[in-house]
Nucleic acid binder design. Structure first.
Lengths: 148, 148
DNA sequence: GTATCTGCAAAACTTTTGCTTATTT
DNA sequence: AAATAAGCAAAAGTTTTGCAGATAC
């Protein structure tokens, strides 16, 4: 079993980057977060335990987590802040969202995953993640005859 | 046939908003753009024809276009600026984003589109749209090793 | 005439950077 | 001892807002 900590420490070692108390703490706090988090939110949580930490340290460490594959950045329309979320925690579920009532279903489809890999490769990319959201109308909202 | 102009003008009328030369021009320029555009880029193009236009006017009008369904906002990891793109410009394209340098490629894959329809149907949804973003590392960033 | 819009500038907010001191290796 | 990181503050970049004068209705 490969732990996230090990991935991070190996990453640091490979690049001759240093393991510090702050980086350890930031990784731990990040891993404890169940869902996505903004840099500001993470900064605020960490300050409670470690009041002298700097925002830039948190920010720079989040970028490290992205670079070593533990986190990914997510930006959403309607929110100007970047979210960081676990890359490996919920590796394979995508969302189906009802425009009428907001109901959300999760799904996983191997064929789509494979096609994504293929497309990335065709463009010279090494795929590290993806985000797929299908919007539609659920049964109930279709029956109600169209939503706003 | 419903023109984008008509959609916009109807939207304005319904809400007792005013039709102005600037709004007309911004819509026209936006419709001429083939791909996504940042507010800044659109502002710069418009200034060439209409030097006194204000950035806020462009920005506010883009939001109007989103609200009336003609445009949508797209934000990508690796780029801090919001892109605006046509909402009704089928076939939709999806994005491939490099986590290292923010470089963005567009693609369209019929097989993926079809699978999405199928999945939505399997969950009792009627699909109305989707958003797919594949993140990865482009050739250049793979070679550089992804370091900051 | 009234309500809305424009353009400007400033504010608000997010992300990045420069630099000095501190820490890790 | 040398190299890197932390923390701070300031800069840079993006989005939003307040307002006086202009324009559409």
């Amino acid at each position: 079993m490969i732990s996230e900590q090990k991935i991070f420490y190996d990453y640091l070692e490979t690049r001759r980057l240093k393991r510090t108390a702050q980086r350890d703490l930031i990784l731990d706090m990040f891993l404890k977060i169940e869902k996505h988090v903004t840099p500001e939110e993470l900064y605020q949580s960490i300050r409670k335990k470690y009041p002298h930490i700097g925002f830039s340290t948190v920010y720079r460490t989040l970028k490290l987590l992205v670079n070593c594959g533990l986190a990914r950045e997510v930006k959403t329309a309607g929110d100007n802040s970047t979210f960081f979320e676990h890359q490996y925690d919920h590796p394979h579920h995508d969302h189906l969202v009802c425009q009428g009532c907001g109901k959300m279903a999760e799904f996983f489809d191997k064929a789509i995953e494979d096609l994504q890999e293929k497309i990335a490769r065709a463009h010279g990319f090494k795929m590290t993640g993806h985000r797929l959201e299908i919007t539609g109308l659920c049964k109930t909202c279709q029956d109600k005859g169209g939503a706003e």
